[in-house]
């Protein structure tokens, strides 16, 4: 069965790129554009990996992450945070909130896919 990744990202072109990369690597990808509907969708879909943008309309990526970690059903879900600001402070905040991996934009395609595989394999 294909590995399932859920992507929460508000930039349509970036969503398009990630969907292409992961699909080509054999993933099934579900994409959402805003933070408000994300949590309900997650609990229904139970993906193998969550890729979460930090800056989202409605609800920020960090907020979503904190509430996921507080819920036993999703506490162990592997999460990769994406950020376009790339400062040390953002990385620390993401790690404190319980992110498993932190990927700065723009990224190399190969690194991105490798990280996704590693995170899903660990689980």
């Amino acid at each position: 069965m294909a590995r399932h990744a859920m992507l929460i990202e508000d930039e349509p072109n970036i969503t398009e790129a990630i969907r292409f990369l992961l699909t080509r690597d054999g993933w099934q990808v579900t994409a959402l554009a805003d933070g408000l509907t994300a949590e309900a969708a997650l609990r229904d879909a139970r993906p193998d990996l969550l890729i979460l943008d930090t800056m989202l309309p409605g609800r920020s990526g960090l907020e979503i992450l904190v509430s996921l970690r507080a819920d036993p059903a999703t506490a162990d879900l592997p999460v990769m945070m994406l950020t376009a600001r790339g400062q040390g402070r953002d990385r620390e905040a993401a790690e404190r909130a319980g992110a498993d991996f932190f990927m700065a934009k723009p990224f190399s395609n190969a690194e991105f896919v490798a990280a996704a595989r590693a995170l899903a394999g660990e689980a």
């Binding site: 800056m55 600001r85 190399s108 991105f112």
Partner: peptide, 21 residues
């Protein structure tokens, strides 16, 4: 500064990903 970083990196992400593809 952080905003400028964000505004510059966002389009560059798509450009880099698709140009590598």
């Amino acid at each position: 500064l952080s905003q400028i970083s964000h505004e510059l990196r966002t389009p560059m992400t798509s450009i880099r990903a698709f140009s590598e593809i």
